[in-house]
Nucleic acid binder design. Sequence first.
DNA 1: GAAGCCGGTTATAACGATTCAGCAACCGAC
DNA 2: GTCGGTTGCTGAATCGTTATAACCGGCTTC
Lengths: 335, 335
Amino acid sequence: MARIEDVAARAGVSAGTVSNVLNRPQAVSPKTLERVRAAIAELGYLPNESARALVAGRTRTVGLIVPDVTNPFFADLANGAEEVADTHDVIVMLYNSAESTDRELRYLGQLETQRVQGVLVTPVDLGGGNVLALIERGTPVVLLDRGTGLRDLCSVAVDDRAGGRLAATHLVEHGHRRVAFIGGPLAVPQVRERLDGAREMVDAAGGILEVIEVPGLTVGAGRSVAAALAERPPGERPTAVLCANDLIALGVLQAATRAGLRVPGDLAIVGYDDIEFAAAAAVPLTSVRQPRHQLGRVAADLLFEEINDGKRHSHRQVVFQPELVVRASTGVQRG
Amino acid sequence: MARIEDVAARAGVSAGTVSNVLNRPQAVSPKTLERVRAAIAELGYLPNESARALVAGRTRTVGLIVPDVTNPFFADLANGAEEVADTHDVIVMLYNSAESTDRELRYLGQLETQRVQGVLVTPVDLGGGNVLALIERGTPVVLLDRGTGLRDLCSVAVDDRAGGRLAATHLVEHGHRRVAFIGGPLAVPQVRERLDGAREMVDAAGGILEVIEVPGLTVGAGRSVAAALAERPPGERPTAVLCANDLIALGVLQAATRAGLRVPGDLAIVGYDDIEFAAAAAVPLTSVRQPRHQLGRVAADLLFEEINDGKRHSHRQVVFQPELVVRASTGVQRG
DNA sequence: GAAGCCGGTTATAACGATTCAGCAACCGAC
DNA sequence: GTCGGTTGCTGAATCGTTATAACCGGCTTC
């Protein structure tokens, strides 16, 4: 593969000039510029990034570690981050930790030996143990959607409590007074916050919020809860459920329909995340949407700010507001 | 950040010895080994990959470009590839082309300037135009799940025709003689092959296969087809549908149930891909499963074979056999 | 006692780019 | 015709690592 010297020889100039053509073309005369460019094209020359990184002391890459690539939330977020990185001439390396601390640790290590400029990461363990070591050794890090508790770090997140309030307010305004919150484990901050927000509004309306904790945010969990709810006499059943994510909501929808409950007539449903399937469900789902793409963009902005400002950078925590998308599963005004 | 010289100074040896500790510890005396390792730990030294790559003339990375990271098929495939890469001490860089030729081209370019050892890619355009340039300049490439037409390349894929046969045979054995195939665009080789396989078996059984082409493999497409089918008088309606993927199948399931058709009583449904939602659907879906993980592993194996064998490597096309997962949507034996 | 060997170590030369001081050629101005 | 000032290019040093040849006591071996 052609090196810069080969190009230089072919164009009859020195290597330094070729480098100038590549990096500061305005410092080269039009005539040689053309000659060198021709040589580059003829040889199919591509600069060696390793050599560049070595002399520059930094690579042109940042890392992005998400807990689940198959979740559209993170795919959109990744796109947003990439757009911003692009404007900085930086490549985003994407990794899927799959919620595994081990994988996260491995990837962080890889990114560090690769000397990436910075890392965007949704930490698996909320204390951010793996991440702290990186930071101490000087790699800029921005936290995504989790671990906002860590004050001396940049982070972006969505206000889950506000999301809970949004969903609950919507139900209350539709006349619901018996509402169930389905989600879990409650130890997950995201779930907890959504619950707290919901409780706040239901309480304020003088309603009753029943909390049904489930082991995971899955379709299966939603189905078994709905099956149990359907068994109750109508008077002891909530008229609406607020689910911690759309998967649970879809499960509830399936099992409830199956058991003969009509949605939203007998049971209104609100989901969370607004995944693609939410709109495509048998009864399109009302859901809380998060500004995913924007989240990625701002996270990347913060990261580059930190990279460029160096020591005199002050960390910021950005919190986005979610938005309610109303569809058929909560029906029309009631009561 | 600490360099190898810093470690050497601290341990009272030369840089060469530190390098030996890292790369050929058996060539170093136990005493100095220990001293050097201690120094490494104390300084938190991490070798600079750019420098390593520069002298080695090759990086320790390969690229993986998939058309849709959110599709579990590719996520599993990526995991398989990564496992293999791990045993070669190589990092997998993951990219999402999102079916965009532009993005694919950009990523391929990035990978090439990064001097990756090789690339695994599901080409967006089936001719593989973008990919050919890479290959000509000497980067080993293995094609994933597409573009198997290109003979002088390594590739892995799943036998879609066999998948179609598998699904159709299952329906025929359950007594179905009026079957509809729903999928499209038919120009997509995957879809076409599945259809051909299905036709083969339905024809052999003396049945009738109706082809319903849809613009895309989406839930919405499935729903509108099912709505139309439900309008027909029972005698003119197929008793079973074979869908080109699970999303269509889920759409059909929803709309059919909605219209009062019972699944599988009035309409049996077979999907394709066996995505997670298939098992979690209102009526769990019979579907054709592909050995996704294995696909990734073998693709990576082929790539490393090519990387290590160099010129005297002969390209291979590996084709996997799919597997039918029977669930409730095709019910019990009929007729 | 000289020659050869051996494990363990060091010094040195790459790898492919960028940067920067320095130099030649040319410019208009006096 | 000489002088400062550009402009455009070259040559050398440099980044952090690995590979390799050379070295060096200490030990056999004849």
